[in-house]
Amino acid sequence: MKLAETVTFGGSGLDRAAELRGDALALQGARLNPDARAIVMWRGKLLLSKTRPAGLVRLPLDHPILEGALDGAILLGREDGAPCFAVAIDAWEPAGQDQGQVGQFFDPSEQHHPAMPEDEVFAELRRVMTWLTPRDAELAATAKAVFEWHLSHQFCAKCGARSAVTHAGWQRTCPSCGAHHFPRTDPVVIMLITRGNSVLMGRSPGWPQGMYSLLAGFVEPGETLEAAVRREVFEEAGVHVGSVGYLASQPWPFPASLMFGCWGEATSDEITIDPLEIEDAIWVTREDMAQAFAGEHPVLMPARKGAIAHFLLENWLADRLD
Results as ranks from 00 to 15, higher is better:
Asn197Val: 13
Thr6Phe: 15
Ala26Gln: 04
Asp186Leu: 14
Thr267His: 11
Pro34Val: 01
Gln154Phe: 08
His167Ser: 03
Glu270Lys: 03
Ser163Asn: 14
Ala292Arg: 00
Phe106Glu: 09
Ala73Phe: 00
Asp288Lys: 14
Ser249Gly: 09
Asp107Tyr: 03
Ala292Met: 00
Gly29Arg: 08
Phe9Thr: 10
Trp263Gln: 06
Ala30Val: 05
Gly202Tyr: 07
Ile193Ser: 12
Ser243Tyr: 07
Phe147His: 03
Leu139Tyr: 02
Ala248Asn: 04
Pro108Arg: 03
Gln104Val: 15
Lys305Ile: 15
Leu139Arg: 05
Leu3Ile: 10
Leu214Ile: 03
Ala123His: 01
Leu32Tyr: 08
Lys305Cys: 13
Val284Asn: 06
Val299Cys: 09
Gly206Gln: 12
Pro275Tyr: 11
Leu56Arg: 05
Pro187Arg: 14
Val7Ala: 06
Glu148Ile: 04
Arg31Lys: 05
Ala26His: 06
Ala290Leu: 15
Met41Arg: 04
Leu247Met: 13
Glu110Asp: 15
Ala164Thr: 13
Glu223Leu: 10
Ala237Leu: 08
Pro64Asp: 12
Met259Arg: 02
Gly196Cys: 15
Ser268Cys: 09
Ala141Gln: 07
Val189Pro: 04
Arg127Cys: 11
Glu235Asp: 14
Val121Arg: 02
Thr51Asn: 11
Leu75Glu: 00
Pro175Tyr: 09
Thr267Leu: 14
Ala30Phe: 02
Ala290Ser: 15
Thr51Pro: 08
Gly196Ala: 15
Gly306Gln: 01
Gly11His: 09
Val57Gly: 03
Gln250His: 07
His180Asp: 13
Gly11Gln: 13
Met116Arg: 10
Trp92Glu: 06
Thr8Trp: 04
Val128Ile: 10
Glu5Gly: 11
Glu19Thr: 02
Val299His: 04
Thr173Ile: 03
Lys2Pro: 08
Glu220Pro: 01
Arg78Asp: 07
Arg172His: 12
Gln171Gly: 11
Phe106Arg: 14
Ile271Asp: 02
Glu236Leu: 08
Met289Ser: 06
Val244Trp: 01
Ala38Ser: 02
Trp263Lys: 00
Ala141Leu: 08
Gly238Arg: 02
Ala227Phe: 11
Glu314Arg: 00
Ser268Met: 08
Val239Ile: 07
Met201Gly: 06
Leu25Glu: 09
Gly100Asp: 08
Pro298His: 12
